[in-house]
Design a protein around this nucleic acid. Sequence first.
DNA 1: GATGTACAAGCTGTCGACAGTCGGCAATCG
DNA 2: CGATTGCCGACTGTCGACAGCTTGTACATC
Lengths: 228, 228
Amino acid sequence: MPSSRASVQPVIIQQRNLVDQVADYLTQAIIGQRFMPGERLSEVQLARDLGVSRAPVREAARLLESRGLVVSQPRRGFFVRVLDPGELVDIFDLRLCLERHAMERLAEACLPETLAALRHQVEVLCAAAASGDETRRIEEDLAFHRLLIASAGNQRLLRTFNDLAHELRLCITLITKTHEAPDSIAESHHHLLDALASGDGTRCREAIDYHIGVARDYVIQGIEEARA
Amino acid sequence: MPSSRASVQPVIIQQRNLVDQVADYLTQAIIGQRFMPGERLSEVQLARDLGVSRAPVREAARLLESRGLVVSQPRRGFFVRVLDPGELVDIFDLRLCLERHAMERLAEACLPETLAALRHQVEVLCAAAASGDETRRIEEDLAFHRLLIASAGNQRLLRTFNDLAHELRLCITLITKTHEAPDSIAESHHHLLDALASGDGTRCREAIDYHIGVARDYVIQGIEEARA
DNA sequence: GATGTACAAGCTGTCGACAGTCGGCAATCG
DNA sequence: CGATTGCCGACTGTCGACAGCTTGTACATC
């Protein structure tokens, strides 16, 4: 008999190997601007600092490279990625591409519980924005959009967005501007929810176009101010 | 003075390190079905066969993992990725998402030389189809779509498509069906070109929706036949 | 003073080795 | 006879080391 449940529970204990731990450390260090864009990441120094050998460091760096956080130059090493304005526009354009797709799929058929989950996440986001903790606000904002994409039901689309999210975080490290007004964040996201609730495809598209356009301009403007 | 061009030319001589060579070897072996889906890739055996140490093999495997060609299980090793039908649908859905975006951008403003380049690639594709070399036809087909995406001018979009292309090749390894009729290939692609030339966004969208729908059904049907 | 060159230090690319873990097989027990 | 336990082989995760390259510096030369 073939049956019941294949495995009671895959038991995701996942032994934390050094590679993942180093990758997490590097990611946090880059996002947290402890390593600045363009800075060289010396394998030996990192290995020394973290108390591991170079092998896990190399593999972790390659992982981050595939996520677009670092770039490698043969025989020279790894460097924290430097985003130029053109790349920034491309990143937000791809984001628009992905989120439009998710919105369209959801406009066709959006379950009440999906809408409720999104609504709840907006509340969490608003709370984070009100707290004044910018890092937390950014993560909850990304979490909302991740949930939006995930709701479309395409795992591959979600994976692509998650990869892109790392680069979005990288964009945000570039700006020094004070945070956005909590009111506009709430309004901006409720606008998306209303569009979804209406089930009108055109309205959904306009809503997401506006939303991401604002986010993009926010980042671009923030960078120009930081540069000045 | 800060300037002119930061680097005259990144000098893409890129010394072929072992990692890239091993990655290419593995990619070809997987695409060419010398390693079947689900098959385990032993690091030691690969290292022995290729006459290198395990380090480059491990790094190459991680590279392929980021491209979706293999999956890793901690403490167990790397396995050639097995695509289930659901993932296949997701892959084609993402492809649709990306190509729709490119078509829309091109519909807004498509230069004559862009159209000419695409037209030329269709001719190359048709020649490949007529030659009966299925592998070549597939590569030229992908090359057309890569050119289409590249013409939209978003490097990040192109990178995402290139990653996806590896998985598309993986899909195709699953089917055993005889190749499509060259006539329909020509017609199908000319249909896209005509839509682009018209500059009509709606028509472009319909054209790419149809085109990718056909490709998806072709693969899905081929797999079901292979399974029977 | 500017330019080119040789040297030195540090780094990456690659390798072989050791330890811990996983999967399978055989022996043991119910 | 079926299930469990212990053992063995193979493999992965990690490490330290060596060779070759790259970079920065000091020196010689024009």
